[in-house]
Design a protein around this nucleic acid. Structure first.
Lengths: 204, 204
DNA sequence: TTAATAATTAACCGTTTGGTTAAACTTTTT
DNA sequence: AAAAAGTTTAACCAAACGGTTAATTATTAA
């Protein structure tokens, strides 16, 4: 029985596990529920991934990569910085609209087990310094107002991610719990955030 | 036995429950751990609060109130809007620095059980429309650039809350996991966020 | 002082949970 | 075709969990 079948089952498990973990987090998820959603026996989960922890680590690593979209190619391209930032923001919010549970999941788990997070980051060779250096270079060239590039990075992430992470609360408070209205708002927001960020960093 | 002793035990439970729930969330918390931290028998928890759910609701309601600080008095004061917003941002970030686990806790739980959240909001009579209306009035007076006041509100919250909610990740990525450096950054940020927001809304 | 009431605990209970085992079934190898 | 290896399942297990019970201790009321 082989690659074909094995891959198939393993993939069914990964898909189901991602769906459950991402919605309920490590603590809130049950192995039985994952097995049910994958349409297999619970023992099979342990046959493919020895423990809940191991299965979770596989999913978290996979999902974590998604939140670092293909930013480097974009960032090192030969384009004006305001264009690059605009494109990044739009793409990032698009990514989140397609994966609305992602922000809440990541925030939950990085707070639950920060040390595990640190080990993942090391393994993946994420290098934020490259990004910060791009900003610093633009500042020196006079294309950007001067300030701590980490603030800029965190501002971009905050403005993009927060409306998804806090969605239920925002939706109730400011949109009468109208799902469609909030969705429209998020689409609009791609432009709003872009303007907001660019307005704050371009030299007056 | 009475008020004195009863209050004392009840309060010990509330303090312990808040400490545990806020760090580990509903799913991650154990009644035994709360009992231990309160220095009492587990059965006492059920004697004072019938179930884990009930105890959690008591804590969540209490904590939830804290994230709506005394904003109304401030907002309806007779002051220039930029002054009011500046003060609000500073106070809010101060509040979060004193309660660093609050953002992650709230975000976790509003996503876990949004309907319970809705019921809490109703009970507490939070009225965000009042706030939005203040912004709209300032726009009509020409004191603020015109745009969706909900964006402004969400931007303020995002910029203030996100650095706390995503703290472990940000600290590792941008600060070499240096706790002190990140703390300094957050203190600085009170000013940064204020400038950032005001710069974005005051008429050019 | 004592009866009644409230607070507190140790021991227990049923269920759920992550995980294991041994057997059955399927595919591959010889 | 039969043995070996890999895959899948039903049944089971021990630990952890939220919650209950019955008895004990402390406080209040008579």
């Amino acid at each position: 029985m082989s690659e074909a079948k094995k891959d198939n089952t393993e993939e069914k498990i990964l898909i189901a596990a991602q769906s459950v973990f991402i919605r309920k987090g490590m603590d809130g998820s049950r192995m039985q529920e994952i097995a049910d959603e994958a349409g297999i026996n619970k023992a099979l989960l342990h046959y493919y991934f020895r423990s809940k922890q191991k299965l979770f680590e596989a999913i978290f690593s996979k999902v974590f990569k998604q939140i670092f979209p293909d930013i480097k190619n974009l960032l090192f391209a030969e384009r004006p910085i305001e264009e690059k930032l605009g494109i990044f923001i739009e793409r990032y919010i698009d990514l989140l609209m397609k994966n609305p549970f992602l922000p809440s999941f990541i925030l939950k788990e990085i707070n639950r087990d920060p040390e595990f997070l640190a080990s993942i980051i090391k393994k993946q060779g994420v290098n934020p310094d490259d990004i910060l250096r791009v900003f610093e270079m633009e500042m020196e060239k006079g294309q950007l107002r001067k300030f701590d590039p980490r603030d800029l990075m965190i501002n971009i992430l905050a403005l993009s991610i927060f409306p998804f992470a806090a969605r239920p609360l925002m939706q109730i408070m400011f949109f009468d719990n109208n799902k469609k209205a909030y969705r429209e708002f998020l689409i609009q927001r791609k432009e709003t955030v872009r303007e907001f960020i660019l307005n704050s960093i371009l030299p007056k």
